[in-house]
Amino acid sequence: MITEIAIVDVKPDAGDAFAAAYAKAHELLATTPGCRSARMMRSEESPDRFVGVVEWESKQHRLEHFRGTDRYAAYGALLRPYLAAPPRVEHFEAV
């Protein structure tokens, strides 16, 4: 299993709109083969900052079933208008 962590900064005062867009985009992500769980959390101190946490069966599942598909393009199209900068994304394995 691999855990994907994305730190997402949205444009000033776009937090509510981003959260609403994620509510629609979540289904695209969560129903991807190999996606075990997906959630987005919002900072209480910085309401225009979010952290996305996705657990994948493997990095290969993420690449083949999400990243390289129309599903990824649709997910990005819903969220991209609200981003202040590209998300910072890293992948982690349990130790």
Results as ranks from 00 to 15, higher is better:
F50H: 03
Q60I: 11
R80D: 13
R36G: 12
R39M: 12
A25Q: 03
I7V: 13
V95R: 14
A74H: 10
T32C: 10
R80N: 14
H91T: 09
L83D: 05
A25L: 04
M41S: 13
A21R: 01
A6D: 06
E55R: 13
S43R: 06
R67W: 14
L79R: 03
D16F: 02
E64G: 05
I5V: 14
Y72M: 08
F92N: 02
E27P: 00
V10I: 11
D16M: 06
V51C: 10
E4K: 06
V95T: 11
E57K: 03
R39T: 14
R39H: 12
M41G: 12
L78S: 07
Q60S: 10
A94V: 09
K11V: 03
A23K: 10
P47K: 05
L28G: 02
D48R: 06
D70P: 01
A74Y: 03
A17T: 10
E90C: 11
L29T: 06
L83K: 01
K59T: 01
S58G: 03
V53H: 07
D70N: 09
R39K: 13
G15I: 04
L79H: 10
G68D: 10
M41I: 13
F18N: 07
Y72S: 12
V54H: 02
A77G: 00
M1P: 12
I5F: 13
A19H: 03
F66S: 03
E44R: 12
D13P: 00
E55N: 13
G52R: 03
R71H: 04
A38Y: 01
A84E: 04
A84H: 05
E44T: 08
H65V: 00
V89M: 10
D16Y: 01
T32H: 05
V51I: 15
K59H: 13
R36K: 14
A23M: 07
I2V: 15
C35Q: 04
D16E: 15
K24S: 12
L79W: 08
L83S: 03
K24V: 09
P86L: 11
R62A: 11
H61T: 05
H26Y: 10
E64S: 11
K11C: 01
H61S: 15
V89L: 11
H65E: 15
H91N: 08
T31W: 01
I7H: 13
E27A: 15
I2W: 06
A6R: 03
V10D: 06
V51R: 07
C35L: 02
D9P: 00
I5P: 02
W56P: 05
G52Q: 13
